[in-house]
């Protein structure tokens, strides 16, 4: 920058204009982050927010806690499974809605329905469907002769884990549909026509044209959905409450239980910080892999 006084005035003006955003960012992101790190070094009784400094004691406790490792495993299992289903069904639905099917615009609106419904409402409906005494699922499966006895969908394993994974996939796959459909509509028809003339069948056209074109949008979708699924709380809490016992308890549920059930804000903060570290390492790895792919495709 030159020493032009006008440049300096613009620089000051620029700093003033972004200042409010920076302040809000610090208040809502930096402060809670630092505060969580700080709290995780104490044993804190939640109602009074008082306690003693114990250094890395909370982390040492977690490292030896089977409950923590179980919750971490549950979180990873839930995230990987529900995300995979979201991507597979989301891409499939987007491809279907991209075709000239009858009632296409109606189908496009309807498919977004699960995403728009409030989680509480959706979960209440699913709990009715899953109910072991008068739920529709058991009734239909009994009628179809698939099962001889009603299943306990939410109260026993592995049914409870399968149930939350399925409901999670149902609730969030429309997000994948929206993103993928938007990208599909920008792929030029000429690419498909050129591929047809070059002798590519329907499957080849999907693998050689559609998938490479969806690559960028899928990177973003997987990243966002992975973050959101990893810290999903309400859907799991409302469906199973983490049960039976802690069989479907994920890390966000453990944070909640430690903080407000066991009144130990310090340990809850330590769980939250550990969760952040796990997520961070996955994100770094993922972005590195995606970045490498991107560089390769640009070379």
């Amino acid at each position: 920058m030159s020493g032009n006084p006008l440049d300096k005035r613009y620089a000051v003006l620029g700093a003033m204009l972004i200042a409010p955003t920076v302040l809000i960012f610090c208040a809502v992101i930096i402060y809670p982050l630092v505060s969580a790190l700080y709290l995780s070094l104490f044993t804190i009784f939640t109602p009074t927010l008082r306690g003693n400094f114990i250094g890395l004691g909370n982390y040492a406790y977690l490292a030896n806690s089977p409950e923590f490792w179980r919750s971490l495993w549950n979180t990873l299992l839930w995230t990987v499974c529900t995300l995979t289903l979201q991507i597979v069904f989301g891409v499939a639905a987007a491809l279907m809605l991209h075709q000239n099917i009858v009632f296409r615009s109606l189908a496009r609106s309807l498919i977004l329905f699960p995403y728009f419904v409030s989680t509480v409402v959706a979960v209440l409906v699913w709990r009715w469907l899953f109910n072991d005494l008068y739920g529709v699922m058991n009734h239909l499966m009994l009628m179809a002769g698939l099962i001889k006895m009603p299943l306990d969908w939410l109260g026993s394993m592995p049914n409870a884990m399968i149930s939350i994974i399925l409901v999670g996939a149902w609730k969030y796959f429309p997000f994948v549909v929206i993103a993928v459909l938007a990208r599909l509509q920008t792929i030029p028809d000429a690419l498909y026509e050129a591929a047809k003339i070059d002798g590519a069948g329907a499957w080849s056209r999907f693998v050689d044209i559609t998938l490479p074109q969806l690559r960028d949008v899928l990177v973003v979708v997987v990243l966002l959905r992975a973050i959101w699924d990893f810290k999903e709380f309400d859907l799991i809490y409302l469906l199973t409450g983490g049960g039976p016992i802690i069989a479907t308890q994920t890390l966000p549920l453990m944070v909640y239980k430690d903080a407000f059930g066991l009144n130990d804000m310090g340990r809850a903060s330590a769980v939250a910080v550990s969760m952040m570290l796990v997520m961070l390492s996955f994100m770094v790895l993922y972005l590195k892999l995606a970045g490498r792919g991107e560089r390769e495709s640009q070379r």
């Binding site: 030029p188 000429a190 690419l191 026509e193 050129a194 591929a195 047809k196 003339i197 070059d198 002798g199 590519a200 069948g201 050689d208 044209i209 490479p212 074109q213 690559r215 495709s297």
Partner: peptide
């Protein structure tokens, strides 16, 4: 007869090169 079996080749107004393939891969694709 499907386009791929007609023994024809076509050059499009937009050229329609496959964007994620190199020049060599584009030419080799058919």
């Amino acid at each position: 007869v499907p386009p791929g079996q007609r023994d024809i080749a076509m050059v499009f107004q937009s050229y329609a090169p496959y964007p994620h393939m190199s020049v060599a891969e584009n030419i080799a694709y058919p």
